[in-house]
């Protein structure tokens, strides 16, 4: 049994937590495959905010990001109902699918990101002024991000848009921590070049 409390005879807290998480996710995935309404609702409510935030960082568009987040969860249902879908990390699978949908969105938009920036996106940057200058800076970032590779955009969205830790990013992208360090290094270098060229 998975016991998460201070029970004697068990190993470290981290090990217990990891086991509990793995077990929870497996049990949850099994319930999801059954399209159990309560499980579907719980998974939706848990992951929608994160997916929505991720898509807003990548696209800067309110409506498109809401559609992408919802469509990601719809595709999850489609996948599990066909016996496919996530086998290990549900979160990683969802973020990977959201990444794919963002790319599709950009392809449909003729390769150019829409720059109708969400006021909300700007309002939460920590700059209370929310000024036109800040709006311009945000728009520059969106434009600059678009010149990065999809994988570089993905890692920046997770780390700087989603506030993921190095380990969480590695888990979500199915890579090792050192690979993420190298990837984010290249992504930031590319972003700097892109911002400089735009300036």
């Amino acid at each position: 049994m998975v016991y998460c409390g201070a029970h004697p005879g068990l190993t470290t807290w981290n090990q217990i937590s990891r086991r509990a998480l793995v077990t929870d996710e497996r049990v949850e995935l099994a319930s999801l495959r059954a399209l159990d309404p309560q499980t579907v609702a719980a998974i939706h409510d848990r992951y929608f905010p994160e997916l929505h935030r991720y898509a807003r960082y990548r696209t800067g568009e309110d409506q498109a990001s809401e559609d992408i987040a919802a469509e990601t969860l719809v595709r999850l249902l489609e996948a599990v109902s066909r016996g496919r879908g996530p086998k290990t990390s549900l979160r990683g699978w969802l973020l990977g699918t959201a990444d794919h949908l963002v790319k599709e969105h950009f392809r449909r938009s003729l390769g150019r990101p829409q720059v109708s920036l969400s006021d909300e996106l700007i309002a939460h940057t920590g700059d209370p002024a929310g000024s036109a200058e800040r709006r311009a800076t945000t728009r520059s970032l969106q434009e600059a991000l678009h010149h990065l590779t999809p994988e570089q955009q993905h890692v920046l969205a997770l780390r700087f848009g989603g506030d993921f830790s190095l380990e969480e990013t590695a888990s979500a992208m199915g890579k090792k921590a050192n690979a993420i360090k190298a990837l984010q290094f290249r992504a930031l270098a590319a972003l700097r070049r892109s911002l400089q060229e735009a300036a």
Partner: peptide, 19 residues
């Protein structure tokens, strides 16, 4: 620092529509 742009939380209405 320029890349750090954390979007605000989803609105309840957006959550309800998606749900």
């Amino acid at each position: 620092r320029a890349a750090r742009l954390v979007p605000g939380p989803s609105t309840p209405a957006a959550l309800a529509r998606s749900r």
